[in-house]
Design a protein around this nucleic acid. Sequence first.
DNA 1: CAAAATACATAGTTATTCTATGGTATAGTA
DNA 2: TACTATACCATAGAATAACTATGTATTTTG
Lengths: 107, 107
Amino acid sequence: MRGESLKGHLDLLVLAVFTDGPLHGYGVIRALRQRSSAALDLPEGTVYPLLHRLERQGLLASRWRSVERRRRRLYSLTAAGWRALDRRRKEWAAFASTVQAVLEPSG
Amino acid sequence: MRGESLKGHLDLLVLAVFTDGPLHGYGVIRALRQRSSAALDLPEGTVYPLLHRLERQGLLASRWRSVERRRRRLYSLTAAGWRALDRRRKEWAAFASTVQAVLEPSG
DNA sequence: CAAAATACATAGTTATTCTATGGTATAGTA
DNA sequence: TACTATACCATAGAATAACTATGTATTTTG
């Protein structure tokens, strides 16, 4: 998967994996890998700053969890996050059908 | 249409409009507008540099045409351009189905 | 005649993702 | 035991793509 393809769509993908419940950063990477059958394998340098931004934007909320000695920052969708996810889903659908229209102007 | 959505997919869209024959820069903008039912209205500052790059990459070839006093730079797909278009179409299909898989892990 | 559309071009900005790096902890293995 | 892989967090800086803003000039339209 070429990296540039993701630009502008990564927020959607990351928000989407939270529909199954809270996740920590590394778990987001794993969830995307699983849901995409390994097509997506995002570097940590992409995911962590993104989670920080989504939290700054109020779409995610985080809390620290300690499992044994491991500390994890657990994120979950806020109400605004759910709304943003819904909006982004619609934007994706519109975008995908626009691309399709350009690719196949007849059909 | 949010601009960032296009990132990494614009080459595909621009190459695709050449399937109907040669076009000049402004014509590319018009063709994208028409094929997308006005969803795409790209600024010239996006399209002209992109055409230059695609030509540098050997995917488009250009020649000057003068219609009355108007000079136009007419672009068309090279053989490499057709191959690139084909490849990009497949990449788009793969990307779109990956997004779909992440959005709907069950179905 | 003024405004809008047509037509080309480029410099500089912005936003997003990536690479590279650095830290800690645990489990498996040579 | 040392090494390696994996899990987990984080940030600085690079790369890239598309955009805004600006400039020029011609043609059509209100």
